[in-house]
Amino acid sequence: MTFSPLLDQLIQGLRCLPGVGPKSAQRMAFHLLERDRDGGKHLADALLQALEHVGHCRLCRTFSEDELCLLCRHQGRELHKLCIVETPADLLAIEQTGTYRGRYFVLLGHLSPLDGIGPEDIGLPALQQRITQEAIQEIILAMSTTVEGEATAHYITEMIKGVKTSISRIAHGIPLGGDLEYIDSRTLAHAFESRLLLSSSSVAE
């Protein structure tokens, strides 16, 4: 039973969001109409503006309304470090740690042959060009710990083999505050394989 085609349209529209089913879409629509019409207008305006103007940064491929994003334009960033991530969300996660001051390259995906996603689809030609043109001394691969992430990291390493830079990838290991007994065996095995040397005085002495 429908009493307002416009309301139906709004509910239907909200369902394009991830995690929003018919019931939540209905709740959101009623909330906007009953209690927060200003908020709704603001949302509609922001949506329109963002969809119209936000594209990708020419250098790092993250979302940006200008040709270069704020991070790439920032004067204080270390120009000789480049961190390669899969998604803009990964970039934000690293930014929040506050430990990295270099710049980024966002692949917007990972290699996945079975989905038909190849090197061109994740901007690797552009990455190669950027690495050969800029004086980058260190490349940090921050891929997810899936086989696709691993394959992507391998491909990039092979691709830039001739270039004079150091390449590292972020460590895989035990989460902080984690009890060993509850950690899955593969993570634990990985943590063992890439353990850190604390002191190396020889046993024989």
Partner: peptide
């Protein structure tokens, strides 16, 4: 075959 393309590197 998409996975074959990944071998052609460099």
């Amino acid at each position: 075959m998409r996975s074959r393309e990944l071998f052609v590197v460099g």
